[in-house]
Amino acid sequence: MRNHNVGAAAKVVVLVAGAVVAAGIGFVVTGWIASQPPVLTVVAATALCLSSAIATFLLADAVFRHTPQFGPIAVLMGTGVRMAVAVVGVLLLSEALAKHGTPRDEFAGWVAYLYIATLAIECGLLMYGSKTHVIPEKAP
């Protein structure tokens, strides 16, 4: 019998690794363009997006395992929660980061970039290996 917790844990590791790689790629690109890469901004944006992504991923994964027909609803609800966390996080953290010299629009741009990257990874992981049919096939 396959243990779903191990599968979910492995997917969380992939989600974390994917977010770190996306942040690293963005960091390298902005480091080449700008004279000073925004280390604190990248770390804060990654932490904000990754923490909400892991929470909503675990919720959606549990829903997909127990009641697959509600899986897409769980993904949409999770996306809404993640969007709310991202918006509130940008509003709250941009003020704190501004005291360290980070422009507010720069932090918001990093959150938007990492939000999209983690959302794509999360949805891909939820769909990977999913053999459940949400819409039943018609009988011949």
Rank of each mutant, 00 (worst) to 15 (best):
V85N: 04
A84M: 12
V87Y: 13
L93W: 04
G78F: 01
L92H: 07
K99D: 14
L91I: 09
P72N: 11
P103A: 09
V75C: 04
V88K: 06
V81L: 15
G80S: 05
T102L: 09
P72H: 11
L93A: 15
L91Y: 15
L93M: 12
L97Q: 09
M77T: 13
V87P: 01
V81N: 09
E95G: 14
R82T: 11
V85L: 03
M77V: 14
A84G: 13
A84R: 05
R82M: 15
V88I: 12
V87C: 08
L91V: 12
K99F: 10
A74D: 06
E95V: 07
V85I: 12
S94A: 07
S94Y: 01
G78V: 01
L93I: 13
I73S: 13
L76P: 00
L92P: 04
L93S: 08
T79W: 08
E95W: 06
K99Q: 13
V87F: 11
T102P: 08
V88N: 08
V75Y: 04
M83G: 15
G101K: 02
M83R: 06
L76R: 06
A74T: 06
G80D: 06
K99C: 03
G101E: 03
R82H: 14
L92E: 14
T79V: 01
V81P: 04
E95A: 07
A86W: 03
A84I: 11
L91E: 14
A98M: 06
V85H: 04
L93D: 09
L76C: 09
S94W: 01
M77W: 12
V90E: 05
L93E: 06
H100T: 11
A96F: 09
R82C: 08
V87E: 14
G80P: 05
V90T: 08
M77H: 10
I73Q: 11
T79I: 03
M77C: 14
P72T: 04
V75R: 04
V81S: 10
S94F: 00
M77A: 15
H100E: 13
G78C: 06
G89H: 03
M83A: 15
I73G: 12
V81M: 12
V85K: 01
M83K: 07
M77R: 07
G101N: 01
L92V: 15
A84P: 09
L92Y: 11
G101F: 00
L92I: 12
T102M: 09
M77Y: 10
G78E: 05
G80R: 02
L91M: 12
A84K: 03
V87H: 07
G89S: 04
V88Q: 09
A96M: 08
V75E: 14
P103R: 05
G101C: 01
I73K: 07
G80T: 03
I73E: 10
G80L: 06
A96P: 03
P72M: 05
M83Q: 13
A74M: 07
I73M: 11
H100R: 07
E95I: 06
G89M: 01
G101M: 00
M83C: 11
S94T: 00
L97P: 05
A98E: 12
L91D: 14
A98W: 07
S94C: 00
R82K: 15
P72I: 02
